[in-house]
Design a protein around this nucleic acid. Structure first.
Lengths: 211, 211
DNA sequence: TGAGAATTGAACTGGTGAGTTCACTTTAGG
DNA sequence: CCTAAAGTGAACTCACCAGTTCAATTCTCA
């Protein structure tokens, strides 16, 4: 139906990617059980047997999408963490910027969909937690903790347990955004994201800053 | 199958409650789409048409369960908030106790199931957010904010925006528990709950306490 | 250009589950 | 004790969907 598949028709790689993209759209829109393989095939501009040629069955296709999406999200989050390297500038400003970017990642449609589907299907596919969460969240937190440890060593933060501090910084962002986005159903305007980040950083620095 | 239905067989009220209890069990175990109405009926010790007599269709039964469960969870959370009234004792101890009890509520099987199902079906039934979230989370946060405001007035906390502080206190609890329970699939031992609460309160008091 | 692989469309199987029907039994309550 | 309402079991309809089959077609690459 839609033109998710580029009309090259050449080789198998293109089709595989087109199917994954289509799966992202349809799974996000309808959920795992409701998503029909026929619909995914149509969305990819591909015949149904082709989907089965590439992925074997619906469950494998689902896992492949989860893994790809988790990797993408993790990469984007790690890129945000890297912005904490230039510690020369005003620390508050830098943290607010990082928080704001974290929230933008968190609010992306694809991220929301991934989180929702993860939650939804966790009982049916328990290993999903390993595929996505272990791959993404933990590594991001570790990288963030490393940055915080550096800042502590440089005397710019008073932190005894960097991993815990990183976890709490994330919590101060995700908790409020979760409530305000009504679990991802409402679109939160950017000015509100900034406000949440500002108040998270404010509390974080009251607790861990060197005034 | 199971004896969820007390074997009185008298009147219609008992059956209705038995069906709701059975729905809780089956929805929690299998999710909305996977839960069969036949299975729920069997679990309630009731015939399938009886389920349809009382609730009309599967969706209404689901909504009724969500509403009942959300009310129950809210009541339990409000009871926890009420423990903040006796402000005579050591504030840190009281907050740690409240945090610990919040986490216990959060970790209950029924609460986890409710949260998971809410997430999962939010796209299909968007009004679920109003039924559950508006009814529960917001009112708990308001009550908690009221308590914090009292404590601030009494000079025991330095808080400018009580609602925001309440939101952040909750965030410092739910964020870490979410990660450590692997989205609710792992059972977190009580000593770990206490540790999370202790470190949340620690950060909270560093930010808002009057040392 | 021609062989072999990938792709297609369309029809088909088989299973599952929501919701209904109906003749029958149980129970409450006057 | 009798009746009307509630409950029961079993069979049934109907729709939906995962996964398969197959003959016909299209593409790649040598």
């Amino acid at each position: 139906m839609s033109k998710a598949a580029v009309r090259t028709g050449r080789g198998r790689i293109d089709k595989r990617q087109a199917i994954l993209d289509a799966a992202a759209v349809v799974f996000a829109r309808e959920g795992y059980a409701q998503a029909g393989v026929d619909v995914i095939a149509a969305e990819a501009g591909v015949a149904k047997p082709t989907v089965y040629n590439h992925f074997g069955d619906k469950e494998s296709l689902f896992r492949a999408w989860i893994a790809a999406e988790a990797d993408r999200a993790m990469a984007k989050n790690l890129a945000v963490v890297d912005r904490l390297q230039d510690t020369g500038r005003d620390l508050r400003k830098v943290l607010e910027d990082v928080g704001h970017r974290f929230l933008q990642c968190y609010c992306e449609d694809t991220s929301s969909a991934l989180r929702r589907l993860l939650y939804a299907e966790l009982t049916r596919f328990p290993d999903l937690a390993d595929i996505a969460r272990g791959r993404a969240a933990n590594r991001v937190n570790d990288a963030f903790a490393d940055r915080l440890a550096r800042l502590a060593l440089a005397g710019r933060l008073r932190i005894s347990d960097p991993a815990e501090a990183a976890e709490q910084f994330s919590a101060l962002l995700t908790g409020p955004i979760e409530a305000r986005s009504r679990l991802g159903t409402r679109n939160v305007p950017d000015r509100e994201l900034r406000a949440i980040s500002r108040s998270a950083v404010n509390t974080f620095l009251r607790a861990f800053g060197t005034e």
